[in-house]
C-alpha cells in the first residue's frame, strides 16, 4: 500500500525538442519509474515544427498521466520539474516548456532547464555505468563527439553541415522508403543494406575530427537517380562510408583524449553495423564500449529528469523568467559541476 511507503524525492522530466513528446520520472537515486513517449509521425517528408508542436500539445495530458500512473507516486513526492530547454525546434521546445512551467507553478516546485545533448550523455552514463566516456552522439539532429574536460563537456568533433541521421533519412525518402511506427527510416536503410555486398564508391569526407555529409548525400542521390545501382547497393555503400567516417573521428578523438570508455547514443546508435564498428575500435584502444539501449538513446523524458536531478543537486535551477527556450544551445556552453574529475 502506497500510504505505508516513506515519501521519497522524484523528478519529472519533459522532453519535446523534436518529434517526440516524452515524460520520465526518476527518483533522486536514479531509479527510473516511468519513461512514456508519443512520437509525431508526418504523412510525408520530415518533421514540420509547427505540426509536431501541435501533436505534442494534443498528447501532453495523456502521456503525462500515463507516466504518473506507471510511476505510482504521490503528487507531493515530485520535488522538481525538469524540461529540455534546447537545442531543438522552437515550437516543439516551447510546447514542452509551457507544460513544464505550468506543472512547476501548480506543484510549487523548482523548475530546471536541461540541455538536451548533455541529457543524452548523462542518461547513457547512468544506464551503462560509464564514468568518463568519450561519447559519440548520433541522431536526426546531432552528430557530436564529446568528452568531459575541466567543468564541461567539450565538443571534439561534429558535423560541419547536416547530421548523420538527416543524411540517412533524406536518402531513404529519396529512395521512396516510408517510415512506420517502430520502424524509422534508418532501420529501413539498415535492412536494405544487409541485403547487399556490392560496394559503390562514395565521397569520404573527414576533416580532422569534424565531418561533412552534405556532399556525400548529394553524390548518393545522384547515383540513385542514375538508376545504375540498386537501392540495396546504395544503402549498403552509404552506411559503410558514413559509419567509417564516424568511426574514424571517434577513434581520432579517443587517441587524442585517451578516455577509458566509448559511449554510443542517439537514434542512429540503434544501427547494428555502427555498433559493431565502434565496439571493435574501442577494443583496439583498450577502452570499454557501451551502447545506450533504444528507449534511452532516442529522445526521452527520463534523460531530462535525470539531468534535472544532477543539476538541482548542485544548487542550480531555472527561474520562470529565465526558462525561455534556447534553440541553439550548444553542449559546450553548459557548466556541469556534477561531473567529477
Amino acid at each position: 500500500m502506497a500510504t505505508l511507503r516513506k515519501a521519497d524525492s522524484y523528478c519529472l522530466g519533459l522532453e519535446s525538442t523534436a518529434d517526440d513528446f516524452s515524460v520520465g520520472i526518476l527518483s533522486f537515486k536514479g531509479d527510473i519509474l516511468a519513461n512514456e513517449a508519443s512520437m509525431f509521425m508526418p504523412e510525408t517528408g520530415g518533421i514540420h515544427p509547427r505540426e509536431a508542436a501541435r501533436h505534442h500539445a494534443e498528447v501532453a495530458g495523456k502521456v503525462l498521466s500515463e507516466a504518473l500512473r506507471k510511476a505510482g507516486i504521490q503528487q507531493r513526492e515530485i520535488k522538481i520539474i525538469a524540461f529540455s530547454q534546447g537545442p531543438g525546434l522552437g515550437p516543439c521546445l516551447r510546447t514542452g516548456a509551457t507544460a513544464a512551467r505550468a506543472l512547476a507553478c501548480y506543484l510549487q516546485v523548482p523548475l530546471v532547464g536541461v540541455n538536451h545533448c548533455v541529457a543524452h550523455i548523462e542518461i547513457g552514463k547512468l544506464i551503462t555505468g560509464a564514468k568518463d566516456p568519450l561519447t559519440l552522439y548520433v541522431s536526426g539532429g546531432n552528430t557530436i563527439v564529446a568528452a568531459f574536460e575541466a567543468g564541461r563537456y567539450r565538443v571534439f568533433g561534429e558535423t560541419l553541415d547536416i547530421s548523420v541521421g538527416n543524411c540517412l533519412d533524406v536518402f531513404a525518402r529519396e529512395a521512396g522508403l516510408r517510415q512506420k511506427i517502430g520502424e524509422p527510416l534508418g532501420a529501413l536503410v539498415e535492412k536494405l543494406a544487409a541485403r547487399s555486398q556490392n560496394f559503390v564508391s562514395l565521397p569520404y569526407t573527414v576533416k580532422g575530427m569534424d565531418l561533412s555529409f552534405s556532399g556525400l548525400l548529394s553524390a548518393a542521390i545522384e547515383l540513385l537517380n542514375s538508376k545504375k545501382y540498386s537501392v540495396e547497393d546504395l544503402c549498403f555503400s552509404l552506411q559503410e562510408v558514413v559509419f567509417s567516417m564516424l568511426a574514424e573521428v571517434t577513434e581520432r578523438a579517443l587517441a587524442h583524449t585517451e578516455k577509458p570508455e566509448v559511449l554510443l547514443t542517439g537514434g542512429v546508435a540503434a544501427n547494428k553495423r555502427l555498433q559493431s564498428m565502434l565496439e571493435a575500435l574501442a577494443n583496439e584502444h583498450n577502452a570499454k564500449f557501451g551502447v545506450v539501449p533504444k528507449q534511452y538513446a532516442l529522445d526521452n523524458g527520463a534523460m531530462i529528469a535525470w539531468t534535472g536531478i544532477l543539476t538541482y543537486q548542485h544548487g542550480l535551477s531555472t527561474s520562470i523568467e529565465k526558462s525561455f527556450v534556447k534553440l541553439k544551445w550548444r553542449l559546450d556552453e553548459v557548466y556541469a559541476p556534477w561531473v567529477g574529475g
Partner: peptide, 13 residues
C-alpha cells in the same frame, strides 16, 4: 588495416 572497415574501403583509404 582496420578490421571494422569494409576491406575495399579500408584499402582505398
Amino acid at each position: 588495416p582496420k578490421a571494422y572497415r569494409l576491406p575495399t574501403l579500408d584499402e582505398a583509404i
